[in-house]
């Protein structure tokens, strides 16, 4: 199995709180790894470190075949590791759905026609065709979640980093998200507290506790 992401001895702390203490972790192709752990354990911080939004205090990050150190190194990582934020409202900032989904591809240098095409096919693939002209702030919670997923998938990433994706979804929206994620080929790390959600998705379970990530049986 090819290795996509690996971290070695990764440490991070906030001024008054130690969250990651010499963590080792790796993600391989086609894996769906759960990352569990209590509130404030540092799960979101771990994601932020992986895509370079926070700088590690020590340790090394390897992603997609190279070590990543500087901000410029992480531009490529962000394109290939799609980060789904906990709150869809943080992610959907464009006026219309089409613009939001096309925002990533346009940043990756696609032409306007290509980006729109890509956005439309991604939306259709997720069963969200017909939402293109909808206004982002008038969507329901479940719809917002699917649109943010489309926005991330439109960049054609190799890895998905999902931060509590089933948060605040009703049963129907949750089922839909599960079946969608099951069909995706990407490797994933999924932060969640939702046991049934994880049992249907994850191929390997891990837990972040006391600054360390350990395997869960």
């Amino acid at each position: 199995m090819s290795e996509l992401i690996r971290v070695e001895q990764l440490s991070y702390h906030y001024p008054k709180r130690r969250v990651l203490d010499a963590v080792d972790f790796s993600l391989h192709a086609a894996e769906r790894v759960s990352l569990e752990g209590g509130n404030g354990a540092g799960k979101t911080t771990f994601f932020n470190l992986l895509v370079g939004l926070n700088k590690p205090k020590s340790g090394r990050i390897f992603a997609f075949g190279r070590e990543r150190r500087e901000e410029a190194d992480f531009h490529e990582v962000r394109a290939q590791a799609g980060f789904l934020f906990q709150d869809p409202d943080d992610q959907l900032f464009c006026p219309t759905v089409l613009e939001d989904v096309a925002f990533g591809p346009l940043n990756l240098g696609k032409s306007q026609a290509e980006a729109e095409q890509l956005a439309c096919t991604t939306l259709a693939h997720l069963g969200m065709a017909g939402f293109e002209e909808r206004v982002t702030y008038q969507l329901s919670g479940g719809e917002k979640r699917m649109i943010t997923l489309a926005a991330v998938l439109a960049m054609q990433p190799k890895v998905l980093l999902l931060d509590e994706p089933s948060n605040a979804l009703d049963d129907q929206a949750r089922e839909r998200l599960i079946s969608t994620l099951q069909q995706l080929p990407q490797a994933m790390i999924i932060i969640s507290h939702d046991a049934t959600f994880l049992s249907q998705l994850s191929t390997r379970r891990t837990r972040l506790e006391g600054g360390k990530i350990g395997a869960l049986s």
């Binding site: 962000r78 934020f85 992610q91 096309a102 925002f103």
Partner: peptide, 23 residues
């Protein structure tokens, strides 16, 4: 804090100072 998270989300999608309008 929300504005910081939104900016981080934009960076994750490769934001480089340009915004696009499609209509």
């Amino acid at each position: 804090e929300r504005s910081e998270r939104t900016y981080a989300a934009m960076k994750c999608r490769g934001f480089n100072g340009r915004l696009y309008l499609l209509d």
